[in-house]
Design a binder for these strands. Structure first.
Lengths: 197, 197
DNA sequence: TTAAATTTCGACTGATGATTCGATAAGTAT
DNA sequence: ATACTTATCGAATCATCAGTCGAAATTTAA
């Protein structure tokens, strides 16, 4: 007889508790600076129990990233695949969607966006999701440039600059909600509609 | 009788050798992931010798940052204090100057710009230099906005977006030299001169 | 040439922290 | 109730470094 559904769900819930605790500790102490003892304490389990649910510290770390990027992708996917709009409109909607996600899980996304740079771990199962998102956005920018809706710069460079804007948005979002108006304002400032003139 | 000038210079040279080796290792393994043994191997000294020149691993790290930010400041300072120009012109010149620095020490500046986020060390003697640079640039952007040379966004947000541009520049610079023309092109794309229209 | 100062280094120490062990407690089904 | 599976945990291991030691090599100055 296998584990019942309830059992499976409870197990998943406990894993989430551990992951949430780990995120707290990672954020305050940094990844290398965090110990499994602290994570155990923070999440309310014994240290050995962590190893019952996860093979290693690295797996805990990877699980946070994978869950995060996957859920961001799941929410973004439908927005991205609407294609009866101009790249610019899609771009605005993507920013709005990201902003919603960021607000719903305070602290998680700063971690998602920064943590991978800080560490040289082996497992990188989250990369595919991250890359899918980057690819779609890059394509979007390329299309926007072709259609003259974005500046005629190199896409890679423009992507970097817009990356800064993203970050500004993420950090801005921590304090106050970001409305569609705010985002359009920003885009109008930084990416003027230069089809005319 | 004190150490001769030659002796002092040789000592400084050896410190630089160690620092360069350390930078290599830090870049490839990350800061926490690097061991003093590796740094010793890479720089061609015995481990104990590192401790003859530096008190601790942290001091090695701090020395890299302090040297780097200080030398960037020293090069930037004269460019920044020319004030018979428009903020926009000064901004272009700053970017050019940074670009020169980046090209002259490949790899160093990615480290300077990213490493401080990765670590929670005590000593932060490099901060004053870093902050001086940030402050001047922020003021410059504020002035630019007042004079209508930059978009009328919040300075902090604009700073973030321009931060992305900086990074694009840094990474771009790795492949090919960046000319004054390139930079002006980028600025024209992203920060149109909207005094008229 | 020789004593003092400077520089070098491999081997040792001690602390820290990830991972494992072995025992115990719930929970479940018969 | 009783065997079997699942879950929990503190204590013991084991590896990895940062940092120290004490001896030796090299350089300098008399």
């Amino acid at each position: 007889m296998n584990l019942s559904d309830r059992k499976l769900k409870e197990r998943k819930d406990r894993q989430d508790l551990i992951l949430n605790g780990a995120l707290q500790v990672f954020k305050s102490k940094g990844i290398e600076g965090s110990t499994m003892d602290e994570i155990a304490l923070e999440s309310g389990f014994g240290k050995a129990t962590l190893y019952y649910y996860f093979k290693s510290k690295e797996e805990v770390f990877a699980a946070i990233l994978t869950n995060g990027w996957k859920s961001l992708w799941d929410n973004l996917e439908p927005v991205m695949s609407v294609d009866n709009k101009s790249p610019r409109d899609t771009f605005v909607n993507i920013l709005l969607c990201i902003s919603d996600n960021v607000r719903s899980r305070p602290g998680l996304y700063e971690f998602l966006f920064n943590a991978p740079k800080k560490v040289n771990f082996e497992s990188q199962e989250w990369r595919p999701f991250q890359e899918r998102i980057y690819t779609v956005i890059t394509t979007l920018i390329e299309d926007g440039i072709k259609l003259g809706e974005f500046p005629q710069s190199k896409p890679t460079v423009l992507f970097k600059a817009l990356g800064g804007l993203f970050m500004g948005l993420v950090l801005m979002g921590k304090d106050k909600p970001v409305s569609k108006k705010d985002i359009e304002q920003l885009l109008n400032d930084l990416i003027p509609n230069n089809t005319i003139e």
